[in-house]
């Protein structure tokens, strides 16, 4: 237990962070909950309706579809992101010829704006004018050519891929930092004992990085639950709702239909879901702390 005097010292250090948290998280959250209990007119006047908006959510197939797509995007994205990110970071943790070039190559898309990346990929995906389908046809893989963004079976994965392509550099940098702080004596000992690099990766490095991976996975869940910009620009939620996420639906409901209360209810539910999932992931993936 901290003594009273120690607590007094801590308060001024915590205060700035608390003020920021209150201003940029707690207040908007409280405001969102407040909005969700009201019904709005287009001009912004509101009427208190209690929990009606939340009851509406339960029977709304559009919301359920958006929720399903949000979960799908999170899972598909995690599968697209983590295996290559870990592999690249692992490769970069070794001494490679041209390492700096590879680092630049992987990180470069991060500095491009979402709008630029979305438009560029929209063109690449174009069924007849784009680059992907003609390239596939050229190398004899014409059967794989698809209307990527226009087919409900591929659209979500196509948009998710772009989002991963754009952001993977950040994840690689974070993972590289994790690989670099692994104790070299442990790795060296494994090598002396005859373990191969792949064995070292799976049996030593990844278990030692479990805490970092758990944190990154939680971050990915939070990020993908907020997915909006790529979908909004590339598909607008279509074709027929197959890429609609809670973020895009919420935007349309709020700004096209001026139904701010209902959109706020969606937002509040999303926050609760995110917190619950983060909590579950933390609990399930928690490992005994390694001292090294």
């Amino acid at each position: 237990m901290l003594r009273k005097a120690q607590r007094r010292i801590i308060v001024p250090f915590l205060l700035p962070a608390f003020v920021l948290l209150a201003l940029f998280f707690l207040y908007p959250l409280a405001r969102t909950v407040d909005l969700s209990l009201n019904e709005f007119s287009r001009t912004g006047s509101m009427t208190f309706v209690g929990t009606d908006q939340y009851e509406r959510l339960v029977g709304d197939p559009d919301f359920m579809n958006a929720l399903k797509n949000t979960f799908l995007l999170t899972i598909i994205g995690a599968l697209m992101l983590f295996p290559p990110a870990v592999t690249i970071a692992w490769a970069l943790s070794h001494r490679l010829r041209g390492e700096r070039f590879f680092r630049f190559f992987v990180f470069a898309p991060v500095v491009l704006s979402v709008a630029v990346v979305s438009i560029m990929w929209k063109f690449l995906y174009h069924p007849t004018l784009g680059l992907i389908n003609p390239a596939l046809k050229e190398v004899g893989l014409g059967a794989l050519a698809k209307t990527w963004l226009g087919d409900p079976a591929t659209a979500l994965a196509a948009v998710t891929f772009v989002s991963v392509w754009h952001g993977i550099g950040i994840w690689v940098v974070l993972l590289c930092a994790g690989f670099e702080r692994l104790p070299s004596d442990v790795l060296e000992a494994a090598r002396i004992d005859g373990a191969g690099e792949v064995r070292i990766l799976f049996s030593i490095m990844l278990p030692m990085l479990a805490d970092l991976l758990r944190m990154l996975l939680v971050l990915w869940v939070v990020q993908s639950f907020q997915a909006f910009a790529f979908i909004y620009i590339m598909t607008g939620g279509g074709p027929f709702g197959s890429t609609d996420t809670v973020g895009t639906l919420m935007y349309r409901v709020a700004f096209d239909q001026a139904d701010f209360g209902y959109a706020a209810a969606m937002g509040a539910v999303l926050v609760v879901l995110m917190l619950v999932i983060a909590k579950i992931l933390n609990k399930v993936m928690k490992r005994d702390e390694l001292q090294y």
Binding site: Y125, H126, P127, T128, T147, W148, L149, G150, D151, P239
Partner: peptide, 11 residues
Amino acid sequence: LEGFEGTDFTA
């Protein structure tokens, strides 16, 4: 139009 499913309106 061929591939209209994946074609945006400007294209």
